[in-house]
Design a protein around this nucleic acid. Sequence first.
DNA 1: GGTGATTTTTGACAAATGTCAAAAAGCGAA
DNA 2: TTCGCTTTTTGACATTTGTCAAAAATCACC
Lengths: 186, 186
Amino acid sequence: MLLLQHLSQIISISKTLEGEINSIAKEINVSKNTILVNHKERCRNLFFIQKGLVRGYYYDEGKEITNWFAQQEEFATSFYSFITNEPSPETIEALEDCQLIQISHADLQDLYKKFPETERIGRIITENYYIKLEERFLNIQFRSAKERYQNLLSKNPSLLQRASLGQIATYLGITQETLSRIRAEL
Amino acid sequence: MLLLQHLSQIISISKTLEGEINSIAKEINVSKNTILVNHKERCRNLFFIQKGLVRGYYYDEGKEITNWFAQQEEFATSFYSFITNEPSPETIEALEDCQLIQISHADLQDLYKKFPETERIGRIITENYYIKLEERFLNIQFRSAKERYQNLLSKNPSLLQRASLGQIATYLGITQETLSRIRAEL
DNA sequence: GGTGATTTTTGACAAATGTCAAAAAGCGAA
DNA sequence: TTCGCTTTTTGACATTTGTCAAAAATCACC
C-alpha cells in the first residue's frame, strides 16, 4: 500500500502498527466529479491519494475558488473542519477517477492513543504541510499573477493538463480571463 | 511559568516533564529592536513570548515585508528554517522589550524522544498554527485591502498601537500609502 | 461526424492598488 | 524648546487585475 510506504519514510513502521493501519485504512475508488466532502458538512475523514487528483474549493460570491489541489501521495481533507470539528468551509471533489485511502478522525485518534509514535508522524506531516502553505502564502503576497503562473508551470506542469483553466486561475488567486491573457502573451 | 500553563492546556504535564521543560527552557529578556534571528542564518531556536511583541519579516526588493507578528502566549520562530535546518528567509526582531523563553531545536528533539507525549503537543500546536495561517491566506486572497484592515482592527486592535503603520501595511499585503488612505476615509 | 454544452479567449472598460515625490506630523535627544 | 530624524499623509499618475459580454475553440455524447 502506497500509504504505508509513504509513512515509513517518516518513521519505521512495526508489523503490529502496519496491521493496525491496514485495519483502519479503507481503500475506496471514486469516479471523476465525486464530491468527497460537502461544503457546510463536517469533514471527519482524512484521504490519502494513491492515484488521481482532488481539489478543495470555496464559494465566494457564488463562484468556486480553488483552495488546493492534491495528487498522488498527498493527503486531502478539509483541514480546518477535520481539526476543529466545525462544518467544512470547503467542498472537496475528485477531478479524476481516484483510488483513495480513507481514515476516519475517530480511528486516527485511536491510533494516536494506541501507538504514540504515530503522533510523531502526525506532527511531521503537519509541519511539512505548514511549510508548503507558507510558501504559497508568500507566493501570492509577493509575486505577480504572471510569476505565480510560471512558478506553477515549472513546479507542477502536469496540473495544467489535468485541471481546467478556471480551476487553476482561482487557485492562483486570479480570474480566468487574466490567466488566459497571461498564457496568450507567453 | 506562562509556557507551562500554556502547554498544560493541551495535555497534562507530569512533574517529571515539568522539570525537564524547565531545564531546557531558557528565560531571556531582550530589549526593543533586538534581532533574534538574522535573515540567511539558520534559526535553531523556538521562542515563546511571555511578554512583548515580535515580528518576522522578509526582504523583497530591498523592502521589509512583515510576515507575522507574535505576542504574549504565542510562539515565534522562523518556522521554515527551524524545521528544515535551512537558512532563514526571514529576520525576527523584537518590537518591544520582551521576556522570552528560548528552546533550542536539539533540546526539543531530545524532549520529543524522552517524553513521547510531547509529540502530541507539537502536533496540536502545529495544527493550530496551520489553521491560523490558512485563515490568513484566505483573507489575503479573498478580501480587499480595506476589509483586511478592518478585520485586523477588530481582531487585534492593540497591534495598531504597538507596531508602525509600515509594518502593519506590509503584513496586510499592501503599501503604507494605501493603508494610510484606507484609514483616512474611515 | 454532428451538435449542444462547456471551456477558453478576446475586447472594452472599470476598479483597486502601487509608485514616486513631497509635505506634514510626531517624537526623541540635547 | 528646538533640531533632526522618522513616520505618516497627500497628490498625481501608472500599472495590474477585475468585470461583463461576446466570440471562438474544445469536448462529450448521440
